[in-house]
Design a protein around this nucleic acid. Structure first.
Lengths: 204, 204
DNA sequence: TCCTTTCTGTATTGATCGATACATAATTCA
DNA sequence: TGAATTATGTATCGATCAATACAGAAAGGA
């Protein structure tokens, strides 16, 4: 509460949003401090004073991404009445989110830092952990579907969770390649076609 | 034929293979000239004399990757007697190739340069073009399946080609996350489960 | 044996990377 | 008001980036 010293002259939350967009568009190593400060409207000493380092800023940016963009995509999982609808809506939300105009295409978590490297270990690990959490969320929803009797007892939830998470990752690259929303929805249709077979016979 | 001047003391083809592995593991921007020369066993002037620039070296490396690793994956498309077997073998070869021990995991074409940037336009465009060619190859094989009567006339080849190409892209990220071969094959099983539904009813 | 050509290794280029030193400005506390 | 504290802008830091200058070495052609 008691704010000592000269007050900050920029909006920290707004600057973080700008930084998130830069990381989203360019990836961790592709986003330079110059890129970031230019987008955030501040000088580098202010960036370091407010966020600590490029790495810490990225971690805050991914947390913000997860909370805002991620929720938009993943909230469908819990809201939908059936596991099938949950997965389909989650994928359709993914298609919508990955093809928004005026925003970077694809997913920050999927594309932000794919190449493990000497100094980028923490960054890669953080994104990997978030991707693993996404698969876990899918897995839990599918297991609920089995517990509730919607899905057969021998339904291979692990295989299905891995499969749908992988499709979502592929959609990030597809979106980066400039795929239209309808092209992304075609992928969703393909992925949901698998549901029928997986659900009716257990895993293939 | 007439080799004037001092002969090269290193094997250009072997050096290119090493460079390909560095780009494969670290991506275009993640691979520094130092990384490359160290792996190739030469100094930077030799690199520039033999390959021109980092960008030209990358383009040669991706061409080599396509010719060697790519053929291993994609040759299944033409060899298999049916479209379904072609797609399944193509995906299973992908799972195998993406989880080879002692090699980078995932695909150079899919992961090499995902973030379009000022100076990397040509690199991104080249990889994008190769990814588009892969989808085209899938599409042609599926259309053959329709022409030969294996698939119904209303089978949506475009949707299926996009879907399977996207699954393969997702498998690159899955592999980068350390997925085992069996985990990748689980994704293949999921993707092939979609075949049944797509082939029996046309697109979903 | 020169001359030309090409490659090799050392050393270095200007640019940019992430990160700071420092002086100054703006606020709270006493 | 004066001391303490924190933020800001300028001007950098050493390290590393991709790319070369340059001199010497190794080959062919004359």
């Amino acid at each position: 509460m008691p704010e000592r010293g000269r007050p900050r002259t920029f909006d920290r939350a707004a600057a973080l949003r700008r930084a998130m967009e830069v990381f989203w568009a360019k990836g961790y190593e592709g986003a330079s401090i110059s890129d970031l400060t230019a987008a955030m409207g501040i000088n580098s000493p202010s960036l370091y004073a407010a966020f600590g380092s490029k790495e810490a800023l990225f971690l805050e940016a991914t947390e913000l991404y997860t909370r805002v963009e991620g929720t938009e995509i993943w909230s469908a999982l819990d809201k939908a009445p059936t596991a099938r609808q949950a997965v389909e809506r989650f994928l359709r939300q993914t298609a919508r989110a990955y093809s928004q105009t005026g925003r970077p295409q694809g997913c920050l978590i999927a594309l932000g830092a794919l190449h493990q490297d000497s100094s980028r270990g923490a960054i890669c690990d953080d994104l990997r952990r978030r991707r693993a959490e996404n698969r876990e969320a899918l897995l839990r929803r599918l297991e609920s579907g089995v517990a509730e009797g919607e899905l057969p007892a021998d339904f291979d939830c692990g295989t299905a969770a891995t499969f749908y998470a992988t499709v979502q990752h592929g959609m990030s690259i597809q979106a980066r390649d400039g795929a239209s929303r309808s092209a992304l929805l075609a992928t969703v249709a393909g992925a949901m076609a698998a549901w029928i077979a997986m659900a009716s016979t257990g895993a293939a």
